[in-house]
Each structure stands twice: as structure tokens, then as C-alpha cells.
């Protein structure tokens, strides 16, 4: 018997209802406002401005690149965190996991400053790279992708780690008894089994990278046509006093996010094992 099937014996206290409704309004109200105050007749004109199209293009391109980089680096990390194939997590794995959590709870602007300290002009790693190999610190879209990856990769890692933990490890044993080596099992069994989790993690990561502002603007700065993503362009329009443009571009960002989330809607709930 699930707990929810128990009939309520008491009515919810009135003050609780009032606070709950207030909380809901605070969450829904701004979204409602942005739709109601949208400059619908001007939408097409604002969105088709060169600066807006540039920002949208940079946003989509860098978010896709950050998702790709997160998959490349984050998938092995999530396999390690999930303790594949042994299923045990040692102390070192738990320490690694808390480091992966840091970007999630860190204020994005602090993340940006940290990236500057590491990879910016004269940074901890960028200075030796410049001295020894003549490598310039990352600027342009590369800097945007690095900042977005820093912020968004943990979402991918945790989504995939959850999928691995949710998968039945006996599949791995069955594959092993059939003669499959650990690396072949990863490719032929584990990855296909967790494919929905990988897709969900990639979607979350993309959505987070697309919306990233704080770390990215701090590390990559906002250069129109080069590093200015859609969130930066939105902030810029608002700072210049063009609220219509800010709202119009925000709706574009919302639309893209909604499309991404809808595309993977069915993947959020872990698949029930058959």
C-alpha cells in the first residue's frame, strides 16, 4: 500500500494554503509576465537583427560543443563514480564526487573568476603554457565552451551515474560469462543499456550550458559576434534600456529550452526494467 492511498484525515491548514499559493505565484508569475508583456508585433524584427542571430548562433554552437566536451570527459567520469564494474565506491571516489558537485553549488561568477585564475591572462596553467609553448590563453568561443562545460558537465555526470547505478549489474555478469571482455561489455552492453540516461544527461547539460551566464561572461567576457551568447545579449539589451528586445530574446531562449526538454521528456523517468 502506498502512503498516498491513505485518505486524508485532516484538512490542510489555511495559512499553509496561502503560503503555498504565494510560492507558486512567485514561480509562475514572472513567466506569465514575460509572455504577457512580450512585444509580439516586434518579435520578428528584433529576433532577426544581426546581433540577435549572432548571439543565438553562438549560444547554440557553444552549448552543443560544451555538451560534446562534457560527454567526452564526463562519461568516463560517471563510469568511474558509479564504480563500474565493481559497484563499490571507495573513499577516493566519494571525494571525487564532491569535487564534481562543486560547480553545481558554486556561484557562477565565482566559477568564472576561478577559470580566470587558472586559464586567464597570467593564470596558473595558462602562464606556463604561454612561456613554454607560446600558447595564448583561451579567448573567443573556446573560452565560452570551457566556462559552460565547467558549469554544465556535473549535470551530465550525475544523470549518467544515476543511470548506471539503476542498471542491473547482472547484465554485465551475463555478458562476461558469454566471453565478453570488460571494454567490449562497456560498448556492447553497458552503454546501450544506459543510452536513455546518457540522452537525458546530455539534454540537461545542453539546457544548462545554453542558459549559462555568470561564469561565461566573467571568463569569456561579452564580445558581440565572438563570445556574446544569447543570455549575454539579453542582459546587454536590458542594460541599454531596451526591455522589448530583452523580453523577445528571452522568449527565444525559453523556446529553445522547451524544445530540448520536450524532446527528452520521456527520458526523465528511469525506464522500468523488464
Amino acid at each position: 500500500m502506498s502512503r498516498s492511498s491513505l485518505a486524508p484525515v485532516t484538512r490542510t491548514p489555511r495559512p499553509l494554503v496561502v503560503l503555498a499559493v504565494a510560492g507558486l505565484l512567485l514561480l509562475v508569475g514572472p513567466l506569465l509576465a514575460i509572455v504577457l508583456r512580450a512585444p509580439w508585433p516586434l518579435m520578428l524584427e528584433i529576433v532577426s537583427r544581426e546581433s540577435a542571430l549572432n548571439a543565438l548562433g553562438i549560444s547554440l554552437g557553444t552549448a552543443a560543443a560544451a555538451t560534446g566536451l562534457s560527454l567526452l570527459l564526463g562519461l568516463p567520469l560517471s563510469l568511474l563514480l558509479a564504480g563500474a564494474p565493481s559497484g563499490r565506491s571507495s573513499l577516493s571516489v566519494r571525494i571525487v564526487r564532491s569535487f564534481v558537485t562543486v560547480p553545481v553549488v558554486l556561484p557562477p561568477v565565482v566559477g568564472g573568476v576561478a577559470l580566470v585564475a587558472l586559464l586567464g591572462e597570467g593564470g596558473l596553467v595558462s602562464q606556463p603554457l604561454a612561456d613554454w609553448f607560446g600558447l595564448a590563453p583561451p579567448t573567443s568561443a573556446v573560452a565560452v565552451v570551457l566556462a559552460q562545460t565547467f558549469v554544465a558537465m556535473p549535470f551530465l555526470v550525475f544523470a549518467i551515474e544515476g543511470a548506471i547505478r539503476g542498471a542491473d549489474r547482472r547484465f554485465d555478469l551475463v555478458a562476461a560469462t558469454l566471453g565478453s571482455t570488460p571494454s567490449r561489455r562497456l560498448v556492447r552492453v553497458t552503454l546501450p543499456l544506459i543510452a536513455p540516461g546518457i540522452a537525458a544527461g546530455a539534454a540537461l547539460c545542453f539546457a544548462r550550458a545554453l542558459g549559462e551566464y555568470g561564469a561565461t561572461v566573467t571568463f569569456a567576457t561579452s564580445i558581440p559576434g565572438i563570445t556574446q551568447t544569447l543570455p549575454m545579449a539579453i542582459y546587454g539589451e536590458l542594460a541599454l534600456g531596451d526591455r522589448d528586445a530583452a523580453i523577445a530574446l528571452s522568449l527565444v531562449l525559453i523556446a529553445v529550452s522547451v524544445v530540448v526538454l520536450l524532446a527528452f521528456r520521456d527520458r526523465w523517468v528511469p525506464q522500468v526494467a523488464r
Binding site: 551475463v174 560469462t177 566471453g179 565478453s180 571482455t181
Partner: peptide, 10 residues
């Protein structure tokens, strides 16, 4: 396990 030649059915 992959070199034991053991078959399992759960």
C-alpha cells in the same frame, strides 16, 4: 568470468 567457460541463466 569471461574466461571461465561458465554459462548462467537467471
Amino acid at each position: 568470468p569471461e574466461r571461465r567457460g561458465v554459462g548462467v541463466v537467471f
